[in-house]
Amino acid sequence: MSATTDHDPAGSSPAPGRAAPTGLPGRLSAWLFWEAPLARVAWLRLAVYAFVVLDVLWLHSTGRHHGAADPLWYQPLVVGEVLGVPAATVLLAEVTRWGSVLLALAAMTGRAPRLLGWATALCWIWFQYIAFSYGKVDHDRADFLVALLILPTVGLAHLRDGRRSEAAGFALRAVQLMAIATYFLAAVAKVRFGGWEWVSSATIARAVVRRGTWVSEWMLDYPALLQAFQWGLFTAELASPVVFVLALRWQRRVVGAWYLFHLATYAAITIAFWPHLVMMLAFLPLERAAQLARRRWRRLRGQEPDAAVPEPLVAPGRDG
């Protein structure tokens, strides 16, 4: 199967022996519950749990210091008020942090995916709660909860799994939907909090003043350039859901463009929405990339292709 095979943008083609979905509900259902390679979920879960380890140890580790802050600075979130979550302590922060690490490492083995997956989710979410319940919420992390909570529902999946599954298709679609929703809802927030004049404001100029790098600081002398960037970003965010009706080839190009946007953002103001970058992997044929890498590695070492690995690994489908 070619990596650029287009899918049916309105839904999906019927499974062998199944009638084609008719009507909007049927097409929507077929789109939501598409037959995805289980191996793709296994690779995505591997990335998600590896990210959890990196995140709590390095990328977003400082939230644990709230355990050292006086409890008077604690501002419980709604979910904390409802559940009666107490202010952080050093012990609680470290338990949720190291619990996240150990459980995510265990989950990376692929064993007991529901138990270990949801336990990892609980620890990571609690650790985020500790980070965010002192007056500042990082707005890029809510979507990752969906990945942590939904991916375990697929059950067992192996990195070389040759099967497809509707549960896997749903999980991947849910992660994709959530990832793209963050762009669209970010545009909604700009209209709500900044008004339509946001596009002509000095928001990015201020961000560059506060967190700029040599890559971006020269742009402060060209405010029109920064405003043009705001127009482009806002338009892209509003139009982001269109990605779901694009042909697969173009869908992946758009995802690539979003990755480039995030790279440019990091270079300009040293902000990266790390969990979101992992979520966007749900659009990519991860299992095929891994297979390709394995084959190239064997070729580099002068070995024959692995005869044990069937090619194609997954039976032709409509997902590219």
């Binding site: 501002q75 970010a186 900044g194």
Partner: peptide
């Protein structure tokens, strides 16, 4: 998430609005 974006605030996390860099800043402030 829709309700959080339309009427919620940061305290609604994880349903809070995605408001990073969402405020308008005056070019002369």
């Amino acid at each position: 998430f829709g309700a959080g974006s339309l009427v919620g605030d940061d305290h609604w996390w994880p349903l809070s609005p995605w408001r990073m860099f969402s405020t308008s800043s005056s070019p002369s402030g």
